[in-house]
Design a binder for these strands. Structure first.
Length: 495
RNA sequence: GGCCGCGUAGCCAAGUGGCCCAAGGCGACGGUUUGCAAAACCGUUAUUCGUGGGUUCGAAUCCCACCGCGGCCUCCA
């Protein structure tokens, strides 16, 4: 099996060759847990999940690790190295408000660990709804940054020893980028090309101790910080990048990973710095393949709270969106293209998923974990497309083309689609979330109306049955009348 | 200013030198079915690939310029 993956490090597709035959060790930059993750975040996580499932489908053992960033970090955009308010602290204040209103179940929002725990649980719930396998592997494969400060300190010590890092008078530890000639290889931002401050986020005052403006923080001595740990350089907190190096190497138990993924915004500085830190400490490559997902746009624009086009997973589920359909929407666009998330697109996805579901109708559901047998044409076409840098659109195209060609699905056809679904994860409808009561008409009221429709139809009073049907339709309930009876389901509420 | 990436039908989206008068999904239109709908199923739906040049026997695919969009240049998936 020849799998091609686009490697940000080399700017081209390369044949995938794991360090250990048959095993893929993969690290995904995971969520920060001082707020709910939004659908843009989840696009990257769904991508990682599809990548993992594809490798499993074609017979690899995948050791996937996704971190949880529960160290706070700072809020102010223009104060890079330790200014502004801590995000975890801010999240605590928001939760405190939410608690007053009775919508957040946190006993002590002043405790950053409780805040982190609250949003971690929310992330896991959303992740499970979207069928991320990694969400079921918490905490073994989802390490917390706050639990790995010892490992971070260990790496920092090695870096100081190797003269890749230095300690300033005020107790900060910086990585000396000039000692790492490879710096800039991933992003193209080599030291000679870096235009310091062009992003408008660097505050000179806070970088005074640096030898080079591009040097980045490994440890900040700051006893007043909300989350702090003891270290050889005083009480304080770790820099932003070091946690991923520490958790990746520690949890996977190797110095060189096969694949490291993240959003395109992570390329610089985050992943560039991770490479410098990790390779600086070990003398070995940190990851052989770097894969980055492009941003998701919403209705053609960058998602932002101020534009009112900001969605979390729970927002959408509360509107009656099937989580499996949301998963489909997030995975249907190639990961290296900007995807344009639209509410119409969600409806399209619902239809597309329905089409697949109706193909296997009657067959038993829920065959997760299928493995590619190489026996059917459609699976070969699917795998071939996916092996070409995860070309999901072409892969889906092959599946639908085949669905169109099969007149009456035989049991082996149903089995083939179910095996493919081990990668897609969309055939089984998400169970209705009973914790969110649907707005408007209740299930009981709907059942009453449905019985009225049935009665009217028995009396051939079509005017009456049609009127009730229209009424339900207006209330957001889709009614399907057939010889077998009357079925209904709630429609997505997308306005 | 520097470094990445993108621009294909009404919408989403494959294809990156001849198999392309361009896959697939949605929508729309026509049909089967239905008391009427819905759902399902069948069919039709880009001689053309942001714009203008160029290279080539041949370009959506390569090169140049321009226009537009997104990301990064120390929060961000």
């Amino acid at each position: 099996m020849d799998i091609q993956l686009y490697n940000t490090l080399s700017h081209r597709a390369e044949r995938f060759e794991p360090v250990t035959a048959g095993v893929v060790r993969m690290y995904n930059c995971g969520p920060t847990v001082y707020d709910y993750a939004h659908i843009g975040n989840f696009r990257a996580f769904v991508f990682a999940d599809v990548l993992r499932r594809f490798f499993e489908f074609v017979g690899y053992e995948v050791q996937q690790v996704m971190n949880i960033t529960d160290v706070g970090h700072m809020t102010e955009d223009n104060v890079a190295d330790g200014g502004g308010q801590d995000k975890m602290e801010l999240a605590g204040q928001r939760l405190k408000e939410a608690k007053k209103q009775g919508v957040a179940n946190v006993s002590n929002p002043d405790d950053p660990y409780e805040v982190a725990s609250y949003f971690t649980e929310a992330f896991l719930a959303d992740g499970k709804a979207l069928r991320l396998k990694i969400a079921d592997e918490h905490p073994q494969r989802m390490p917390h940054a706050t639990a790995h400060v010892t490992q971070m300190i260990g790496i920092i010590e090695r870096l100081i020893e190797a003269n890749h890092a230095y300690v300033t008078d005020d107790g900060a530890v910086y990585y000396d980028v000039a000692t790492f000639p490879e710096y800039g290889r991933l992003s193209g931002n080599t030291l000679d090309k870096l235009h310091t401050g062009a992003g408008g986020r660097v505050n000179e005052e806070h970088t005074a101790g640096k030898r080079n403006p591009a040097d980045f923080l490994l440890w900040k001595h700051d006893a007043s910080h909300i989350m702090k740990w003891d270290s050889p350089w005083g009480v304080g907190y770790p820099g932003w990048h070091i946690e991923c190096s520490a958790m990746a190497m520690h949890t996977l138990g190797v110095d060189t990973l096969d694949i490291h993924t993240g959003g395109e915004d992570n390329i610089f500085p985050h992943h560039e710095c991770e490479i410098a830190q990790s390779s600086g400490a070990t003398g070995k490559p940190f990851a052989n393949y770097w894969m980055h997902t492009r941003f998701l746009l919403v209705e053609g624009e960058k998602m932002s709270k101020s534009k009112g086009n900001f969605y979390t997973v729970r927002d959408l589920l509360a509107r009656g969106v099937d989580a499996a359909v949301l998963r489909y929407e997030l995975l249907r666009t190639h990961y290296r293209s900007n995807m344009n998330f639209t509410l119409k697109g969600l409806e399209d996805s619902q239809k597309a998923v329905n089409r697949m579901r109706s193909f296997i109708e009657g067959a038993s559901h829920g065959s997760w974990g299928g493995v590619y047998s190489g026996q059917s044409d459609v699976e070969r076409a699917f795998v071939e497309a996916m092996a070409d840098d995860l070309n999901i659109s072409a892969a889906l195209g092959a599946v639908f083309k085949w669905i169109n060609e099969v007149d009456t699905p035989a049991s082996e056809d149903v089995a083939a689609l179910q095996r493919i679904d081990a990668v897609l994860g969309v055939l089984t409808p998400a169970e209705a979330d009973t914790s969110v009561a649907p707005a408007g008409i209740s299930d009981e009221e709907i059942e009453v109306k449905v019985r009225q429709i049935q009665q009217a139809r028995e009396l051939k009073d079509y005017a009456k049955s049609d009127a009730i049907r229209d009424e339900l339709n207006d209330a957001g309930v889709e009614v399907q009348i057939s010889r077998d009876g009357v079925n209904w389901r709630r429609k997505m509420r997308l306005d």
